[in-house]
């Protein structure tokens, strides 16, 4: 989290507007929201990320992010 600053940026997460610290990558964002990372998959600006890519993708102002996991269903 070397680049984490006090400045907040506005992003959309799962349909909701959120303000989060600037300078995080997607992996850090999942930690920030305390999401269980093993089960979660992220779509970043309509692109599905491989889980191992999460730390390579920066979260920027205006990003639209979907964080999903499996639930029961037919």
């Amino acid at each position: 989290m070397d680049n984490k600053s006090e400045k907040l940026i506005n992003i959309k997460v799962n349909g909701d507007e959120k303000s989060v610290p600037e300078g995080m990558n997607v992996d850090e964002l999942l930690d920030y929201f305390k999401v269980k990372k093993q089960a979660a998959v992220v779509e970043h600006n309509r692109k599905v990320l491989r889980q191992k890519e999460n730390k390579d993708v920066q979260v920027l102002e205006g990003d639209v992010i979907e964080i999903v996991r499996f639930v029961g269903g037919g």
């Binding site: 799962n14 964080i67 499996f70 639930v71 029961g72």
Partner: peptide
């Protein structure tokens, strides 16, 4: 079989 859904950010546990 099962389905993906959004994680509840407010209840991540």
């Amino acid at each position: 079989t099962f389905v993906v859904r959004r994680v509840n950010i407010d209840k991540p546990d």
